[in-house]
Design a protein around this nucleic acid. Sequence first.
DNA 1: CTGTTAGCGCTTTCAG
DNA 2: CTGAAAGCGCTAACAG
Lengths: 332, 332
Amino acid sequence: MRVTIRDVARAAGVSVTTVSRALNGAADVGEETRQRVIEVAKQLNYRPSHVARSLVLRKSQNIGLLVSEFRKGSHHFLYDVLVGVHDTLAEHGYDVTLVSTDTARQQLVSYVDFCRARGLDGVIVMGIRLDDPYVEEVVESSLPSVVIDLPLLSRHCGYVMTDNVNGARYAVRHLVARGCKRIGFVNGAAHAAVSRERLRGFEEAMRQYVGGYDERVVVYADFTLEGGQRALADLLRRHPDVDGVFFASDLMAIGGLQYCKEEGIRVPQDLAVVGFDDIDLARFVSPQLTTVAQPRYEMGCEAASMLISMLQKGEMPSGTLLPPQLVVRETA
Amino acid sequence: MRVTIRDVARAAGVSVTTVSRALNGAADVGEETRQRVIEVAKQLNYRPSHVARSLVLRKSQNIGLLVSEFRKGSHHFLYDVLVGVHDTLAEHGYDVTLVSTDTARQQLVSYVDFCRARGLDGVIVMGIRLDDPYVEEVVESSLPSVVIDLPLLSRHCGYVMTDNVNGARYAVRHLVARGCKRIGFVNGAAHAAVSRERLRGFEEAMRQYVGGYDERVVVYADFTLEGGQRALADLLRRHPDVDGVFFASDLMAIGGLQYCKEEGIRVPQDLAVVGFDDIDLARFVSPQLTTVAQPRYEMGCEAASMLISMLQKGEMPSGTLLPPQLVVRETA
DNA sequence: CTGTTAGCGCTTTCAG
DNA sequence: CTGAAAGCGCTAACAG
């Protein structure tokens, strides 16, 4: 920071207070003075120091983006959300600082302390699991936060998720409409909140559209391709009559597709497949994957908007569900 | 920030100066005093304010990650780099602030001013183009910076790239070894620095391995799938004898593959295809794409390391080339 | 309408 | 070895 507010004050022949007021649009400044100050500031290419301002105002206009599982190759879901968060926050004059839970953990500090030390005004949390010790902290802390994909609601903590229940319903309904008689479900990790909701949607839809829910056709995997592959093998071994499967993630569904290819199972003729997420890959695998799309970018935007409302208007946090959308391609 | 250095000082019965020294490992503090201070600080759960420290030290331990083209769906290259940058920086105690060129542009401020206002210690730039007006600023500014995928070198600006020349050479050599007689090249956007280098590699390799370079088999597209599709159609129309094609990006190569499928061209029998990047998709398209892999994560790490060396040891910036690697799959 | 005065929380001379 | 004092750049009472 070369040129400071004092330089401007000196050059304009006024006090620093006046410069501050003029530049920040305070009402009590003479119009001619204001113009002069603005002119001089521009001339000098003056940029107020965010750091100094943060110190005195006690807010930094800086939001933390806390990511667990922030690692190579995990972009399928994270990236678009991140862009949405960034875009919305930037639009409102906030900066975004990347924070990974690993970093905080390594330094053995609580995530709240970590954010407080940096003077972050709020946090958006993504990729965190139900059983993560940070969950409790996030909920109880008074640091304004919005969580993505985990229904945590408290005085200072809101959340944004896809409507997973309905997403799962759409999948089942579509499978039924296609004529599937016996529908299986490959769910994701049990400790993920989204898995519970997708299971609920699956169960409800089965009761409604098929007239009954049989938990034996539900099997669990870990959201990965290999997991999906194994899970499907397992499911079909135990229930060879299954003619339609709903996977709780596209990656798992693609794993399932690979299994089908190896085993000579024709998709969708022998087995109809529906995924969840609509990642890029979905359009490129063959046959193309029918799936339930999540509005990833919009989730990021929504999370950011909510946090901004909390920060600026003191609004209460809330739980927001965004609508998923069935994208019909070739596998079902 | 609730508890400040004064609280610690008071509780420990010493001055703030002493607390500061004790906590920062200064030599001239009595050992017992230091222990007491540390103990009290822990008791009070004291966290020094980064903001206050930044103000007085005139450095923020915060690095900007300047991204142009920071938008939905552009993750194929960016994400892993970003993770690499974050990991390395975090490891060395730096925070990462996301900055998109759009944001700066909207506010009509130069990128340097933008970073200075935020007190950023340095910047890592990615996704910027040769003809971007910011390029000049980056090179001339005294703000330490490292650019990814653009060879900009100056007193305060270094760069990290894949060795694109050799990457292209590997592709051509492989195509030749497979028996291709007439090799075409679908290059990326001309304003991208990487395109120039890949072209050079292509040219050199053709002269070396084939004994001649014919610029008529070089066609340009824009790195996108659709672009690659059109470019290949164009290339084959004009040169039906082409039996091997090197694409400057996987996305374009995949577009080319789609064109082949539509036209009934068998890959690799009728036409061998090699891409560049090794994005996730490469393994999933059918036939699987043979490609030149870029070490994306490592590029991010390397860029971060270079910046840290500049910042901490005052080292001169440099140009670093990272080795690409040919990944042979099914298309060539 | 404008300037003076006090800090925000921290580090750092400079004296003891 | 320790503390008092000054100040990083900015804003906000409080007086004029």
